[in-house]
Design a protein around this nucleic acid. Structure first.
Lengths: 236, 236
DNA sequence: TATTCATGTTCACTATGATGAACGCACATG
DNA sequence: CATGTGCGTTCATCATAGTGAACATGAATA
């Protein structure tokens, strides 16, 4: 999930660079996040700085996004600037990655381009991918009653993971609360199960759909052999 | 999907207001989008300004988000500012809605708060919900071979719809291309089907997972009776 | 009670984002 | 060929974002 991508600690904001005012300015890269400064409550230790990028990178990312979305819309730099109510020179700078736009400027550009800010700050990706039944790295409980395969991890900027689950009757799977704000969409495919928040679990049959908070203890208890389900875990 | 939320036309960027510099400055509200100024190429005419918010509103939204996320993290304004490498006075201003932060400043704050920018610019919501098999408004093809129920529509800021599908052999379901950038995650639950992009459809069995672009013509052809699947349609 | 420390807010100043104008280039038209 | 129009880039200037310091307040401690 999103949160596992984050490590604790401080970040120093990059000094902005005015390229047109000539060189000699300190490089705009952030100092990164101290790798050892994880919070006490963090479940995992990850190499932090490698995962988070820098302030300079977000500026470059937005630059690429602006150009990409503008070309996608098939309009000129001049026209986009006009629509957004922004100076041509400003947009030229932003697209070249030599600016550091304000929130209002970004907003105006997003509106003119008809894309949400999320897409500007965090570009997408794509391709065709097949994972067969039985394939994929499965997470299992000790008695192997419960097995979950993550099919699609949360890409940057999105807020969901997609799992295929297969479980046998026996020990119910009790999940600790996930990060605050997490919800889970569960679709039961085959078999029967008791699922949902620990204190309000619901009996489900094939085709049933349940939405519940994932930031409280929740269970998945298979009532029949080879009970299968799809879970979309979403960080709201 | 996301795209339908946007109307065409120009936006005038708000003149930033520095509240602490006293009154006499023109109000910081955007002039809004001229409702009548739709592009010639615009598919829809919608009451534009009512749907899009204003630059001043995004600033207020971010202000609320910063305070919410900081309180959620249980740290003081002073501590967050320190972690982000931002002046206390800057953060105080931003949280009070009287600022207009730069991208780098927002980035640094997001890193320090461990939340993506998307969550800062577009807050979430939640609840518990159950939809039984057979319930829910189903979209059907003419011969009723293919039936899809939307379980969870795309909330603002997220980019996915969640469907439960049930189909019979017979007429294959051919979907027109969705909005550019759409991908579909398909998990086959029961039965067998041929699915994916029209020119590279794949045979799938129970538990198989397929990811493919949804912005090209794609098919779902049930090969056995009562074939069921879950589809997560995502706008990347 | 006085002192210290932490909090968040306000202030004067500096650095920088955004501006309009000028520039250079390519293309279309008379 | 000369002119006009559109494109994107660069420049000097102005408005404002961000800064560090001062300020006001509340809580804890000696």
């Amino acid at each position: 999930m999103i949160d596992v991508n984050w490590a604790g600690g401080d970040v120093t904001r990059a000094g902005g660079t005015r390229a047109r005012r000539g060189a000699g300015t300190p490089a705009g890269s952030a100092e990164g996040v101290p790798a050892g400064a994880a919070d006490a409550g963090t479940e995992m230790e990850i190499p932090a700085a490698a995962r988070m990028g820098t302030a300079a990178e977000i500026v470059a990312t937005v630059a690429r996004s602006l150009r990409r979305e503008r070309e996608r819309a098939g309009i000129s730099l001049t026209e986009l600037a006009r629509r957004a109510g922004v100076a041509k020179s400003t947009l030229s700078q932003l697209e070249s990655g030599s600016g550091n736009p304000s929130l209002e400027t970004l907003w105006a550009l997003g509106v003119a381009l008809r894309v949400p800010l999320a897409r500007l700050v965090d570009p997408p990706r794509r391709g065709v991918q097949l994972i067969r039944a039985g394939e994929g790295a499965a997470m299992r409980t000790e008695g192997a009653e419960y097995s979950a395969v993550m099919l699609a991890a949360c890409p940057p900027g999105a807020r969901r993971d997609l799992y295929r689950v297969r479980a046998q009757p026996g020990a119910p799977y009790v999940a600790r609360p996930h990060v605050a704000g997490t919800v889970e969409h569960l679709i039961l495919c085959t078999g029967r199960a008791l699922a949902g928040p620990e204190d309000e679990a619901v009996g489900l049959g094939p085709g049933d759909y349940l939405l519940y908070p994932g930031d409280v203890p929740h269970v998945f208890d298979a009532l029949e052999p080879d009970t299968t389900a799809v879970i979309v875990m979403e960080d709201t």
